[in-house]
């Protein structure tokens, strides 16, 4: 460890490309994950998430580009890089013929936990993952939720700096999802976490930063909050005023930044829905317009854009070529 220079980031990916035959799975991907960060790795199915994670963990090679884990190149210094990672593959494959204790002791020893500490570490992670009761059980006889916990215990058993979790809550029931999520949040206080998922609430609940991948390319990398605030597209504002509907629509449509206005009446109240250009905030203008005309304003609000909207927007298939294809096709 060089003490004179700053520590290298936990993960550094530069210009990573991976092809399967002629298919381009990951296309010139570059990002970094700092120590202690909790990063959500998002993308629709087939976006290249799992491929990227497998390359990170040294399971696959990159076609080109470089990946460093804690400063170790995953290709040339693979073993050292792997020592720093706890990787939970998708669907959490385990040796079903082993007992929980036996499996965790095997994995601990395999990952270089010293013989004296194996028992202690295994007990610690079992406690942490709520497995104390099932140590003697065969893994093949455990429920999906317990299997997932065994997988997480395995990830933690050698106390790695970086946890790479590929869809850790897939196939669990809501209560189990909450348990696993709480566990991950707890882990995040002591480890760097890279969490791949396509469940957005999971990311909103756990991660502070998000990487969004689409068709092998990075389409966004920002903090969860900022990404939601970006409002790259349109903002939606609703207002309720008491006034004549036609006049209300005319007045509000004229405000700067407003693209369209729809008015519904509800007795003598009008409910107005405005679509505004990105970045525009017409709420003060709405208030002033209502006051100027003597209309009573009882509500004005801007719909908070959720990560889901941003995600859909960023990963939507490009419209142009597809329409063309459809037209020429039929």
């Amino acid at each position: 460890m060089a003490s004179t220079t700053a520590q290298p980031p936990m993960v550094r990916v530069s210009h990573l490309t991976r092809r399967y035959g002629r298919t381009l799975a990951v296309d010139d991907l570059s990002f970094e994950v700092g120590r202690g960060e909790i990063v959500g790795f998002l993308g629709p199915n087939g976006a290249g998430k799992t491929t990227t994670l497998r390359i990170l963990c040294g399971f696959l090679a990159a076609t080109s580009g470089e990946v460093e884990i804690a400063g170790f190149d995953v290709h040339t210094d693979s073993l050292e890089a792997r020592r720093h990672i706890g990787y939970l593959p998708e669907r959490c494959p385990l040796y079903t013929d082993m007992r929980v204790d036996e499996f965790l002791r095997f994995r601990a020893a395999l990952k270089g936990v010293s013989a004296r500490q194996v028992r202690e570490r295994v007990e610690a992670v079992k406690e942490q993952c709520g497995l104390s009761e099932v140590g003697r059980r065969l893994i093949g006889q455990l429920s999906k939720g317990y299997c997932q916990r065994v997988g997480l215990a395995d990830v933690l058993v050698h106390d790695p700096e970086l946890l790479v979790l590929d869809e850790p809550t897939i196939g669990l029931d809501p209560a189990q999802i909450r348990q696993v999520r709480d566990l991950i949040r707890e882990l995040a206080t002591r480890h760097t976490v890279l969490l791949s998922t396509h469940i957005l609430t999971e990311v909103e609940a756990v991660c502070r930063r998000v990487l969004i991948l689409n068709r092998g390319r990075l389409v966004a990398s920002d903090s969860t909050d900022r990404l939601c605030q970006l409002r790259r597209g349109i903002a939606r504002v609703t207002a309720e005023v008491r006034g004549p509907p036609e006049e209300v629509r005319a007045a509000f449509s004229a405000l700067s930044g407003v693209r369209s206005a729809v008015v519904e009446t509800e007795g003598e109240w009008c409910r107005v829905r405005l679509e505004c250009a990105g970045g525009a905030d017409p709420r003060p203008d709405i208030f002033r317009a209502a006051v100027a005309r003597g209309w009573t304003l009882r509500e004005v609000g801007m719909a908070e854009q959720r990560l889901e909207d941003v995600f859909i927007e960023l990963t939507a298939p490009e419209e142009g070529p597809r329409e063309e294809a459809e037209r020429s096709g039929t």
Partner: peptide, 14 residues
């Protein structure tokens, strides 16, 4: 087949 290969080979083993 069972996918444990991925878990095995991402551990620090040759």
């Amino acid at each position: 087949r069972s996918g444990t290969f991925e878990m095995l080979m991402t551990a620090p083993v040759r």
